[in-house]
Design a protein around this nucleic acid. Structure first.
Lengths: 340, 340
DNA sequence: GCCAATTACGCAAACGCTTGCGTGGTTAAC
DNA sequence: GTTAACCACGCAAGCGTTTGCGTAATTGGC
């Protein structure tokens, strides 16, 4: 039999041989088991230290069927929102002795499936995932369910029954945002929303409509336009809004990038920001306050905290604190932040 | 013997039993081994598909002594520079069938050591690391070396002999930046640099001085000020520069955030940007182009590409293409990008 | 001084998979 | 008809660790 690898790392067996005791004794000594004599324990531990023994996690993972690893799948690692979330996830995973496996889907459904597959093969204990923009088939998550690998969806959550999720209540934040604009006297408020099928888009729209209702104002469907979040899409949306008969004096944009593109467009149309037209956005970049015309206010979604919350929920499931089939949808409150 | 886990996942053994053949045959059939008959192969593969068989990677990792996993340790996952780098790393790892394990040190040396320890126990095949600001002891990396786990340092590289590294030559970028300003006619150029001990600061200063030398200009030490990267520090630095007898008409700032703070300060002093004073910066945020007064130009460091390069170097080592002891320091060129 | 409890350790199986080698059986070459 | 080559498959070891159970030896209670 060929020895595949000679990592050179000392093993428990090595220690046993040198000390002329059995491997089980060594294993127990290393775990401070009560049935091992103090002398033996000391001898084992000392030799282990001398040899620089380190347990082979891969062996333990295999033997225990548990990896203390969670897979985290996000659309884009470099987006500020997600990178803050990763930070929150890693921090809480770390302090609970879990490790984090990472994958980015780039909003590509096929790649998303492959990564989930890879996570599953890696036998991760659980997953945290934010689905891609155009993911419409959820077979891969069904597989995870069958494999009894818990998943906590996060931010971009699929429209599925019986799932765990952590998300931000964008509806309430949107209500706050629209309220804010209404109180400032705006009566014709446009909204550049995201792709229709996105939950995030639905919530924004719902908040928008609810806020109008609160103030007994009629909702004009033409004022909400679904865009694709590209600069071109935003331009088209702006063009649509600015050519309506009623004059749009404020716009709620899907996120900061859209806001900035929209601002650029407005400037090209010789509009004066915060006078002719006011923008409110959803925060996803730390530097929007530095921009020339930052949105008058923005809805903060606390990505770091969402990451923490999702991880905690997953850990609760893994610990058995939270039953796997007790599906929880934790909805965190978003909050409108004024940019004076 | 207690069955620790009953994951329910079908195993190779299960398939063998059902088909009344040996596990080895099943294994080979699944690997499309030539010594297995077509009929058996088909039967095995079909049953495997039916059962939803999936190989247990943890078993394979353990058996093979290789995990196809690389550990990546960074100071702060949520910083734009690093999150782009992660993105580049994940992408190239993914396309080479490697998976990425993640850890952030928060510039805490103890945590850095723990994460490296964890990576080692996970038996990662290799590591990519950017060290913490105040890491001064390198024992943990020495351990990796002894365990024959290759490391590629990246961006923030330690002052050690015999290491692999990928970093960006900020000196050349700085020369370009100062060149640019000189060609525009500026003769009194200030620099708001970072903390003195940082390699990054030294390179910037060196580039500044070299560029002046190229043009046979005298270097005035008063024009380079070391700041702490906070808004207050930047204000103080600006104040210093603006009260010199010679009139500073351009400033090179440590990064985009400093630039934006400096711009704010200049505006408060009723200076006109790009007329009374011009800024050049080092890119570390994707949105600086949206700001009111973006720097006239900035030195791009290509974090995504650096991440790719580091990963490729690591993969070359793992493939044996690049000998482990053939230490390479890849220095990528930074590049001045004009923001017209 | 006898039985029970406790202490201190070893045996061996099991986790799932890969792989070198062995072994019949068939085919082809001369 | 003998030999060689090849085909198709099984055996079993081994990767490092954990753990239920068995077993001596020691101790303590009465």
């Amino acid at each position: 039999m060929r020895k595949v690898v000679s990592s050179g790392q000392p093993t428990i067996k090595e220690i046993a041989k040198r000390l002329n005791i059995s491997v089980s004794t060594v294993s127990r000594a290393l775990h401070d088991h009560h049935s091992i004599g103090l002398r033996t324990k000391a001898r084992v531990q000392q030799l282990a230290a001398e040899l620089g023994y380190e347990r082979n996690q891969t062996a333990i993972f295999f033997q225990q069927g548990k990896t203390f690893t969670i897979g985290i799948l996000l659309p884009e690692l470099s987006e500020a929102f997600f990178s803050s979330a990763i930070s929150g996830i890693e921090d809480t995973a770390y302090s609970n002795n879990y490790t984090v496996l990472l994958g980015q889907s780039h909003d590509d459904e096929a790649r998303e499936k492959q990564i989930i597959q890879s996570f599953k093969q890696h036998r991760v204990d659980g997953c945290i995932v934010s689905i891609g923009k155009n993911t419409s088939n959820y077979d891969h998550f069904e597989m995870l369910r069958q494999a009894k690998i818990p998943v906590v969806f996060f931010d971009r959550i699929p429209d599925l029954p019986n799932i765990h999720s952590v998300s931000c209540n964008l509806e309430s934040g949107t209500v706050q945002a629209v309220d804010f604009l209404l109180k400032k006297g705006h009566r014709c408020i446009g909204m550049i929303n995201g792709p229709e099928q996105l939950m995030a888009s639905k919530e924004r729209a719902a908040g928008y409509i609810r806020a109008l209702g609160k103030h007994r104002l009629k909702y004009d469907p033409e004022l909400i336009v679904n865009a694709d979040l590209t600069a071109a899409g935003t331009d088209a949306a702006m063009q649509h809004l600015l050519t309506l008969k009623r004059k749009v004096t404020a716009v709620v944009t899907f996120n900061d990038y859209v806001a900035m593109d929209a601002v650029q467009y407005a400037l090209k149309q010789k509009l004066e920001i915060n006078k002719d037209i006011t923008f409110v956005s959803y925060a996803n970049t730390p530097v929007s306050s530095y921009t020339a015309f930052p949105p008058a206010a923005s809805v903060e979604q606390f990505p770091y905290e969402q990451g923490q919350a999702a991880t905690n929920m997953l850990l609760d499931i893994l610990n058995g604190t939270l039953p796997l089939n007790d599906y929880q949808q934790r909805i965190m409150e978003s909050q409108l932040v004024l940019h004076t």
